[in-house]
Simulated assay, not measured.
Amino acid sequence: MLKTLAFTLALAAAAPALATPAQAAPNPPLALVDVPKAAGPAVTLFNGRDLKDWDAWLGYADPALTYKRPPVAPIGAGPRSAEIFKAVVEDGRPALYVNGQIWGSLVHKGDFRDYHLRLQYKWGKGRWAPREAQAPNNGLLYHSHGAPGAVWGTWSQAVEFEIMTGSIGMVVPVGEAISAAATAVDDSTLIAPKLRFSPAGRAVTTKGGTADWNIEAYSDAEKPAGEWNTLDLYVLGDRAVHVVNGVPVMEVRDLKADGAPLTHGAIQLQSEGAETFFRDITLEPITSLPRVVAQP
């Protein structure tokens, strides 16, 4: 399903519960330093015209079945995906539209390692059952691999840069084989496992299919609904840094699949209950990661 591009770049899957929105930013604020320069030419992942560089997969016709291991089959690949994923014009510019009404994934055909990915997203107005009353939810998944729909009939295995209001940048291992390590502190305002990323925290591991299924972002850096937000994802080997509107909110390491280092894979965009627009999806190779530091 994946193919290598010109230059070498190389969900809580077990928990339907969602983290509560992130609270006000802890002190001190974080800064991104030693930002790497591009080590080669950039690639645009969305051509602005069509989705020929992406493979679509849809989960169950009724998304409420997603976590219940139903006896029915997911929709899978096919023409119905054109209802959910489209190339459109939004705010006068090309954008990739994700409807959200049926859950699923749009997986880019490239296989990437050691890169800086940047994209912009904004929420549309659509909210769909069973999450119509919850915070709008989507996800940028990286190091995606394996069979489409392997996770709950709906997504490929991956590491998630969460896109959910109040929790933008949270890390979620998508699939029971996936794990990631970070430093975190206890935060009683969150649902279990009540962990929030902090450079000053203790070492913890989050793993799909366990009670420790996520680590919340350090702070909430999202703009008001209806505005475009910029996400930056820096990945080097089995480490990554999540940045929201210029604010670092997560730093992970020891990304693994089935206990082996997870260092490359595809880019995957979720459909998970909320209309979302994406644009300016670009990727460039890097040879180092930026550092996340506490401001004085």
Rank of each mutant, 00 (worst) to 15 (best):
S156G: 06
V204W: 03
P173D: 00
K194V: 10
D186N: 13
I178H: 07
S156P: 01
L119T: 05
A217D: 00
F112E: 05
H116N: 14
S167F: 03
T154Q: 04
H143C: 03
D91C: 09
G139N: 10
V88T: 12
V89F: 09
W128A: 02
D212E: 11
D212A: 15
V204Q: 01
Q101G: 09
H108M: 10
D187S: 08
V171M: 09
E90Q: 15
M164C: 10
A221K: 08
Q101S: 15
E216Q: 14
G124P: 08
P130M: 07
A87G: 08
G175H: 02
K207A: 14
Y218W: 11
A203P: 06
Y115G: 05
K122C: 12
P148L: 03
R202S: 14
S144A: 15
G92K: 13
A184V: 11
T154Y: 08
K194Y: 09
G92F: 13
Y142D: 00
K207V: 12
P173Q: 03
E160N: 00
T230Y: 01
Y97L: 09
G100V: 04
L190Q: 13
R131W: 07
D111P: 04
H116S: 06
Q120R: 13
I191K: 13
H116P: 05
G226D: 07
A150E: 12
E162V: 10
A200N: 12
W228V: 08
V107C: 07
R93T: 15
F161E: 00
W123V: 00
F161Y: 12
